[in-house]
């Protein structure tokens, strides 16, 4: 009897200790999470994570650079010649094969939207320059064509197209 009572009291005690420990662990986790989460982008940053831009003011053959999430973004109004040139390139000539159609939005072929950082080491390439009628990065000599695809030089990838869509014919929403 005595041992049995002792046994059950031990069990009760162990249960209490485990329960207290478990609740304490939950509490600790609940405290730690906000202390980490505060590092995430705050509301004012998130509010600018998605921006709208009216492209109608850009004449054909010109580009503008806009800022999105702290990065420069090229928006280029391409000429027909540029589009045709880009489409004439066989995929086998490309280091990072992508068709021109994959880099634009259907029905808006003249608009090219790309993050303006060279995929090599992040410099901003110069527009309407280089050997392929596109962009040329002066830092380490990467040449991009009129669809922003890497053609020659150390950069491994095409200029990155950010997530965007046409809200209307002239308004794009990036992000």
């Amino acid at each position: 009897m005595a041992t049995q009572a002792e046994h059950s009291s031990t069990n009760r005690r162990d249960f209490l200790y485990v329960a207290t420990g478990a609740v304490g662990a939950v509490g600790a986790a609940a405290v730690v999470w906000p202390l980490i989460n505060q590092l995430n982008p705050d509301a004012s940053t998130l509010a600018l994570a998605s921006i709208e831009f009216d492209v109608s003011a850009i004449p054909e053959g010109q580009s503008v650079t806009i800022m999105w999430r702290g990065l420069p973004v090229f928006v280029r109004h391409r000429t027909t010649a540029e589009i045709e040139e880009a489409r004439a390139v066989p995929l086998s000539d490309l280091k990072d094969p992508e068709t021109d159609a994959q880099r634009i939005k259907e029905g808006h072929d003249q608009w090219l939207v790309m993050i303006a950082n060279c995929t090599h080491l992040g410099c901003i390439p110069v527009g309407e320059a280089g050997d392929f009628d596109g962009w040329f990065c002066p830092c380490h000599g990467s040449h991009y064509d009129s669809a922003g695809r890497i053609r020659r030089g150390p950069a491994p990838k095409n200029l990155v197209v950010p997530p965007y869509e046409f809200v209307s014919d002239t308004l794009i929403q990036i992000g």
């Binding site: 906000p34 505060q38 705050d42 509301a43 940053t45």
Partner: peptide, 24 residues
């Protein structure tokens, strides 16, 4: 991490913490 010790910015920086920072 979220505060700016400058007379022009400090007051608003504290409000920024209260309003915008996650759990601020």
């Amino acid at each position: 991490m979220h505060y700016t010790p400058h007379v022009d910015l400090a007051f608003n920086a504290v409000e920024h913490i209260r309003r915008d920072v996650n759990g601020g």
